[in-house]
Design a protein around this nucleic acid. Structure first.
Lengths: 109, 109
DNA sequence: TACCGGTAGCTAGCGACACCAAGTAGCTGA
DNA sequence: TCAGCTACTTGGTGTCGCTAGCTACCGGTA
């Protein structure tokens, strides 16, 4: 993997983060760590912060600043109603794409 | 769908076309039509031609110019050994991503 | 005291890719 | 002749993830 994954993440990384946030609120540093844990070892920190800014500006998340004992304050993001709606759409789009690809893989074998 | 799909296609559209070519040789116009048939109704023609140029330059396909009875000559692309190897990689990357997302969807429900 | 490492967030510039828009060119049928 | 289908090309745009830096707070250690 590597460059292929980078390209594939365009569009899906956003959904991944929103899906995570639909389960529980989280802050940037935490999300990055979680992603690495999930196997997305080379997702750049900067990428996540930029993504968070983006989804905040689009109004998909609510933000709360929370003091940390271990460093600077955390910006905790939680998915709001609009975000949930958008996530729904994301899953539909994903399903469509995944179905087509799965079909293609079968056929190619 | 729409903008979400556009972003998701980055990286995957290439794999889709390669997968198609792994089944049979094809030319640009034909591929575009096939994609529309598959439900990718707003993939732009220009996108496909650009993609074909790209995968040719990377050496994933062999090209043959074939006369058409109905218009200008066709450029027929067929997947070569290197292309097949790359397609293998693509499927691995895709599997990884699809597995993570499927897992996320389960968890989020 | 000075410094390092972990925690936490931000930003400017870059490359890759899909989209848009417009064009060229060959052929057929009205 | 000219519209319409076939078939390919090209220049410019926007989005997104990556690179590579930066600021800043805190604890422990030399």
């Amino acid at each position: 993997m590597g460059k292929q994954l980078t390209e594939m993440l365009k569009g899906t990384l956003e959904g991944i983060v929103l899906a995570l946030l639909s389960g529980r609120p989280a802050y940037g540093y935490e999300i990055t760590a979680w992603l690495r844990d999930q196997g997305f070892t080379d997702v750049a920190e900067g990428t996540i912060y930029a993504l968070l800014v983006r989804i905040e500006q689009r109004g998909f998340v609510d933000v709360e600043k929370v003091r940390s004992e271990k460093g600077p304050p955390r910006k905790v993001y939680s998915l709001n109603a609009q975000g949930r709606e958008y996530l729904e759409e994301f899953w539909k789009t994903w399903s469509f794409l995944a179905a087509r690809l799965e079909q293609l893989r079968e056929g190619g074998k």
